[in-house]
Computed example of a mutant assay.
Amino acid sequence: MDYPLALALVDFLPVLAMAAGITLLVPYLTRTAGPAVGRVAGAGGAIVVLGGGLKATWKLLVAAGGPDIVVLAKVQFFLFAPGFALLAWAVLSATAPLWAFVSFAIAGLVAAVAIGATWPLLLISTVCATLLSIRLLLLSRHPAERFLFGFNLLGTYAMGMLAARPDQTIAVQWVEESLNTLVWAAFAVAVWRLAKERERIR
């Protein structure tokens, strides 16, 4: 497939939006749950952003006629699972032990390597991303925040269905990347509003 350079550049937009949301989420969790939780959230967020950034870099290289370094795309699955697991624990730290989420991620990594497939990692990423969005949605007090977190959650599932389509045409990928950008932009704005609301209450 002749991958257009413009589409490859657009692929960085959801990564930037994701990074912005996580950058806002870490200090929020540090204030509300403590520095240790904030550090875990920061580590998990950095891993997730790295995974997205590496895949976007792979697409850019391919679009620019560079080498097809497939590992840059595949490693995303191996980074998303532990990254989202740490983020999910951070927002649920008061009710769940860290070792349970770490064990869940490790089990997925081991299963993926053992069977030579990435679906166990995709399952872990989906479960943990769902827990993250639902917990943040429940923490929200304003309808706008709830709508944005809800859109983020539903949009993530819609992205999964689009990505599972066998006919990954350029048109379909434009739709995917546009939706992905909106999904993570909604997350960033919702976290910003949530943190701002928290500051007002204090």
Rank of each mutant, 00 (worst) to 15 (best):
G52H: 03
A17Y: 03
Q173K: 01
P67G: 02
L24G: 08
V172C: 07
A114F: 03
V49A: 13
M159H: 11
R135L: 14
F80A: 13
A158E: 11
N152I: 12
T95W: 15
E176M: 13
F80V: 05
R198G: 14
G108N: 02
S103A: 08
A73I: 04
G116K: 00
L87Y: 04
L29M: 07
T130A: 15
F12C: 06
G51I: 02
G42W: 03
T126S: 05
R146C: 07
A73E: 11
T57S: 12
A195Y: 06
V48F: 02
L60S: 09
L132P: 14
G34I: 07
R39F: 07
H142G: 13
V113R: 12
L138I: 01
L194K: 00
L72Y: 00
Y28L: 08
W119D: 14
R200K: 06
R135V: 13
V183G: 00
W119T: 14
L13S: 11
V37E: 00
L148A: 01
Q173P: 11
A94Q: 04
M1T: 05
A85V: 04
T181N: 08
V191L: 07
F77K: 13
L5H: 10
L132F: 12
V102K: 02
L87E: 13
D68M: 06
D2S: 14
M1N: 11
G108W: 10
K55Y: 11
E176D: 15
R146A: 11
A46I: 02
V71C: 12
D2K: 08
K74Y: 08
A164P: 06
A41N: 07
E199K: 10
L123H: 12
G108L: 13
V191S: 09
L50V: 09
A163S: 07
I134Q: 01
I69E: 08
A96H: 14
G116L: 04
G155R: 02
A8Y: 09
F147Q: 03
W99E: 07
D11F: 04
I170C: 04
W58L: 10
A19Y: 09
V175W: 01
G45Y: 06
A19I: 14
R39L: 12
G52W: 02
L139W: 05
A8C: 10
A107D: 05
L5F: 03
L61R: 05
V71N: 05
D11L: 01
D11H: 13
W174P: 03
A88E: 03
A64I: 07
F104I: 12
G160I: 02
A46G: 06
F80D: 11
A63S: 09
W89R: 05
V70A: 12
T126G: 03
T95Q: 14
M159A: 10
P67E: 00
L5I: 12
L98V: 07
L132N: 08
V49F: 13
W58Y: 13
L136I: 06
V15H: 00
